[in-house]
Design a protein around this nucleic acid. Structure first.
Lengths: 215, 215
DNA sequence: ACCTTTCGTTCTGTATACACTTGAATACTA
DNA sequence: TAGTATTCAAGTGTATACAGAACGAAAGGT
């Protein structure tokens, strides 16, 4: 029942990495974290080794650095995520249970773009999580979680990326939901892929702007 | 340069798991392996924790068991791999370099089914590895490696699976290669997906037979 | 000024020590 | 004999100890 020190440290550092608590060029040193968390070096070592395996940290000569991905590397992540999410949408159209459908229905129609933007964004996030759950493929869900973390951590370096128009996003979600409800896997797949390619295109534009600023 | 004890143990146990060295119901205990490899418990603990994260081991109350997947769970793995491999084929068609193409050409036309079956099989394996490399997406390649290991370990439990007709396999590879050479991503994708669905169907039949035998 | 060299500090990986839990075998009781 | 304590060996997670490597700063020579 009691979570181990290793898991506690892992979760804490993961959340820090995802929230931008560390500077992009920070170096994480087991000894320092062990002192900070009040545990010994051993569980910290193991937690950091896990994060390295997750693709969030890179072992340096001395300690761990936050993984630095090239722009191409980040686009690879988006690409992989888009394909898996598209597959999840297709599988959801075929395998969704009535309960899946009810939950998705709520999330698809619920968020009127008039509300608090932060809350709308969070709803959009849950929507994706529900689609993945409705696909009933835990392997794919697990892979997607990892990719999400990698993307989140990698993007922090490039500053807060301007978010896309929420209204368009909500509309696309609604269209994908319709396909899932209708059991039309092919359409769900195509729409989800297009949905995520919009994201990718936005990111590319963001990179271009970022690059021209820092030149 | 010197590989650490942790990495050595990790590689050794991974290879044992993939080759069926352990009985399906074996329990791996850090203390025992540490004695066997002549290292202390610490690096063995870490290696086993990695393998657990890889989805190859499951922590038991006492030691680690080899992951037991349901038939549905195994089909999920095949499904995820098929989708990612299909994407890799599509990407390869678009991004392959002349060198990629030359290597693939060799592997696609090389194996005449008259030779040693074991060598043909190994060539077929390299062919898939080359397609993945030609896709130039290291994220996807890494995910696929993990899925390969998981599938290999999971399938051992169900006995040596009858392999499919090699001739058909070679022909399908050749057709996919043609699509990649022509830069036809859509065709490469579709053909690869069909190719791997044949594998999946064979597996399902294998499960059905296995089940009727053990009943 | 510019290389070396040296030395001390810090970090690394592994081994060992420790306290705690668990499971099974034994001994005991009714 | 059946059921219940008791005991003990083995495993768990974490802390600590230790030897070796690597960096950085101070000291020295040209």
């Amino acid at each position: 029942m009691a979570p181990t020190a290793r898991d506690t440290v892992y979760a804490a550092v993961l959340s820090r990495l995802a929230s931008g608590h560390y500077a992009p060029d920070a170096i994480l040193i087991p000894g320092q974290l062990s002192e900070e968390f009040g545990v010994s070096r051993t569980p910290v070592r193991e937690a950091l080794a896990f994060l390295e395996r997750d693709g969030l940290l890179d072992a340096a000569q001395r300690g761990y650095a936050i993984t630095r991905r090239s722009e191409e590397g980040i686009l690879e992540l988006f690409e992989a995520r888009a394909r898996l999410d598209a597959f999840a949408a297709e599988a959801a159209a075929i395998r969704r249970s009535p309960i899946d459908l009810a939950g998705l229905d709520d999330l698809s129609r619920g968020p009127r773009t008039t509300g608090d933007p932060e809350q709308v964004r969070s709803t959009l996030g849950s929507w994706h999580a529900h689609v993945r759950a409705a696909a009933h493929n835990s392997t794919v869900s697990a892979l997607l979680s990892r990719l999400d973390s990698q993307i989140k951590v990698s993007m922090l370096r490039y500053g807060d990326s301007r978010q896309r128009e929420l209204g368009v996003c909500v509309e696309e979600h609604a269209a994908i939901f319709d396909a899932i409800r209708d059991g039309d896997g092919t359409r769900a797949h195509a729409l989800m892929l297009a949905h995520l390619e919009h994201d990718r295109d936005l990111r590319i534009r963001h990179f271009a702007e970022h690059r021209s600023e820092t030149l």
